[in-house]
């Protein structure tokens, strides 16, 4: 049981050491140039193959999970979002699902007891939703902020995002909120897997690995920014070299940065082969992205085929005498 998380933890730690020591031993070109390129290729190719694979599978039936009143009689109020019958309703449902994790939010309602009928308790589950939301948004902000290393001059939207993320203006270099929220959320999700018996029971090594990996990425990044400090002008020279396809290894790039970049590359390469593909899957789930309108509009199954049925004729042949005797109408009197 413990190996489920100890092995991934050790793996992330070893990966870090490999890159840190490797860069120190003069393999910067590998960890800084070769592997990142390979990782991006693996990520894109893997992602595309996976999604194309999903797309190739048919959607034979229209089976949305309906979570509200259907469209029926004109005077009955339809729940257009939870039981959409139009594309626009589906669009809003998906929007809420993707940006606000609406289904997960359903978990979080207040509850009431026999004894303390007026006491409102929030279950542990609201924190799952909060942490999931915090984690994904913080990750997105962190990711987008890194565009300052890929554009020169830096786009204004990146600067705006940085200003927003650094709005507390605390310390020098200024604190980014996402840098606090991301590790905190990851730690919560990790703690949940470790200490909540039921989640611990269902968790696999492949659930722990991405968490440790992301935590490793976040911590190396945070260390570079706030603690050990690195020369970011040199680092940007290097990243710009990568994205302009003229890679260079400038002087003064810290080994810690190679470790950071290597862990990121691992994440990218690992992504398509893992559960992280829920990034793509959330858009494609037929129980959410279809309208509940099959009774009004025929849905076609591309592989629909004819099946043998027990026809009325066979039925009548079988029961004709009894039917006639009972006075039931028949096609053939014989």
């Amino acid at each position: 049981m413990t190996q489920k998380y100890l092995i991934p933890l050790t793996a992330v730690f070893l990966l870090f050491l490999v890159a840190y020591a490797g860069a120190g031993a003069g393999l910067g070109w590998f960890f800084g140039i070769v592997f990142p390129y390979l990782a991006v290729i693996a990520f894109l190719v893997g992602f595309v193959i996976k999604v194309m694979g999903w797309a190739r599978s048919a959607v034979p039936f229209r089976i949305p999970t309906t979570c509200g009143q259907q469209k029926s009689l004109p005077w009955i109020k339809q729940n257009r979002i939870d039981n959409p019958d139009t594309a626009s309703g589906v669009f809003i449902r998906m929007l809420l699902e993707i940006f606000l994790f609406r289904s997960l939010f359903r978990n979080t309602k207040a509850a009431f007891n026999r004894t303390a009928s007026n006491r409102i308790t929030y279950s542990w589950e609201i924190f799952l939703w909060v942490a999931a939301l915090a984690f994904h948004y913080a990750f997105l902000v962190v990711l987008l902020r890194h565009f300052r290393f890929f554009t020169s001059p830096v786009s204004s939207w990146v600067q705006f995002l940085e200003a927003l993320d650094g709005i507390v203006q605390l310390g020098l270099p200024g604190l980014f909120l996402s840098g606090v929220v991301l590790p905190a959320a990851v730690l919560f999700l990790l703690a949940r897997r470790l200490f909540d018996q039921k989640v611990r029971y269902i968790s696999q090594a492949s659930d722990y690995f991405p968490l440790f990996l992301i935590l490793g990425i976040a911590l190396t990044g945070i260390f570079m920014r706030y603690f050990t400090k690195v020369d970011i002008t040199a680092i940007k020279e290097m990243t710009m070299g990568l994205v302009t396809l003229s890679p260079t290894i400038p002087d003064g790039v810290a080994n810690l940065f190679y470790a950071h970049l290597f862990l990121v590359s691992i994440l990218f390469a690992y992504f398509p082969a893992s559960k992280l593909m829920h990034l793509g899957g959330v858009f494609l789930s037929p129980t959410r992205n279809m309208a509940n309108n099959t009774r009004a509009k025929r849905h076609v199954n591309p592989w629909n085929y004819d099946v043998p049925i027990h026809t009325y004729e066979q039925y009548e042949d079988h029961f004709r005498d009894k039917m006639i005797e009972a006075g039931l109408p028949v096609e053939k009197k014989e």
């Binding site: 991006v40 595309v48 565009f147 890929f150 020169s152 001059p153 302009t244 396809l245």
Partner: peptide
């Protein structure tokens, strides 16, 4: 998927279509 791939590759093509300031 095409939008996604373009977005992932944006650092690459963006620097091709714009002039890049040197370090």
């Amino acid at each position: 998927l095409a939008v996604f791939v373009l977005a992932v590759l944006s650092p690459f093509w963006f620097n091709m279509v714009t002039t890049t300031q040197a370090a």
